[in-house]
């Protein structure tokens, strides 16, 4: 028998939980279970027995090559996005530019970071594609042939440059508040203690921003790693990155083994999961300092 007092509160509690039952049911049915289904599928044979063979199957040269090029593109676009986005945000916040630039720039970043997928690919094809605006301009005005120089919008760098269109604004949106958080007194305190501007950045400002920057890097990485539409619309299937491979696998089992497909998807979850976990952990760290 339970003691009499906790019983009513316990019943109240379970009734309260009923209030979010629809939400729990929805996410279970349309988010958690489908994902678990894939994850479990990655560790099962078609007969239903547990196995590691599928995951081991990922370590074949062609699949590893897919992961490798995906990781390279995601890293390149994340690092460049961080660098350029940081420069632009620093210019807006600390560069002594006119104040009115800030608000339109942030609004525009909000739009641009949401402008991804198929239309983004079209925009870059129309700009840097074989008959794109910039390509033609460089060829006719300067005699520079991008294709002769080895550049193609359908390549590693083409995809990276295209991804940067949403990566840079995302970095601007996330890092601007962090830059706002740098107090003027820190700079002044460092200066009066004898530090040069460079020493202030090296010993104070950069260490303070570092978790935010690294965290955003992880976020940008995951952001481009999971991007499917832009890549498909831009390159068709000529560039074999993981999302394109998975897309083709779901459509027509190009790997010839459905369970290898689950393993492929599982690998994606692991990579984006690690990147996002890193992001959450680093953000918590930087907030701890600045609360």
């Amino acid at each position: 028998m339970q003691p009499p007092t906790p019983a009513p509160s316990r019943r109240r509690l379970s009734l309260d939980w009923l209030g979010i039952a629809p939400f729990v049911a929805f996410v279970a049915l349309f988010l958690i279970l489908p994902t678990m289904n894939i994850v479990l599928g990655a560790f099962r044979t078609p007969a239903g027995d547990y196995t590691l063979a599928n995951v081991r199957g990922l370590f074949t040269p062609s699949i590893m090559a897919s992961y490798w090029i995906s990781i390279k593109i995601s890293l390149a676009s994340a690092i460049l996005g961080c660098l350029i986005g940081f420069s632009v945000a620093a210019a807006i916040v600390l560069g002594g530019l006119p104040k009115w630039i800030r608000s339109p720039m942030l609004t525009f970043s909000g739009v641009a970071s949401n402008f991804a997928g198929v239309p983004l690919a079209f925009a870059f094809l129309a700009t840097l594609g074989p008959v794109g605006l910039v390509t033609v301009f460089l060829r006719t005005q300067f005699g520079l042939d991008l294709r002769m120089m080895g550049f193609s919008i359908l390549s590693f760098w083409g995809l990276t440059i295209t991804y940067l269109f949403f990566q840079i604004p995302l970095m601007i949106l996330i890092i601007t508040p962090a830059l706002d958080g740098l107090k003027r007194e820190w700079r002044e305190a460092a200066a009066i203690l004898g530090a040069t501007g460079f020493q202030y950045w090296r010993m104070v400002a950069f260490p303070i921003l570092f978790p935010s920057i690294l965290g955003t890097l992880a976020l940008l990485f995951a952001n481009s790693f999971g991007a499917v539409a832009t890549a498909i619309a831009l390159t068709g299937s000529s560039l074999s990155i993981v999302p394109i491979l998975l897309f083709a696998q779901i459509r027509g089992d190009v790997l010839g083994d459905p369970h290898l497909g689950y393993a492929l998807a599982f690998g994606m979850i692991v990579i984006t999961g690690v990147a996002n976990g890193l992001y959450i952990w680093l953000r918590a760290r930087s907030e701890r300092w600045l609360k």
Partner: peptide, 8 residues
């Protein structure tokens, strides 16, 4: 406002 360096 104190202005201590929060990372140190």
């Amino acid at each position: 406002a104190y202005a201590l360096f929060p990372n140190l």
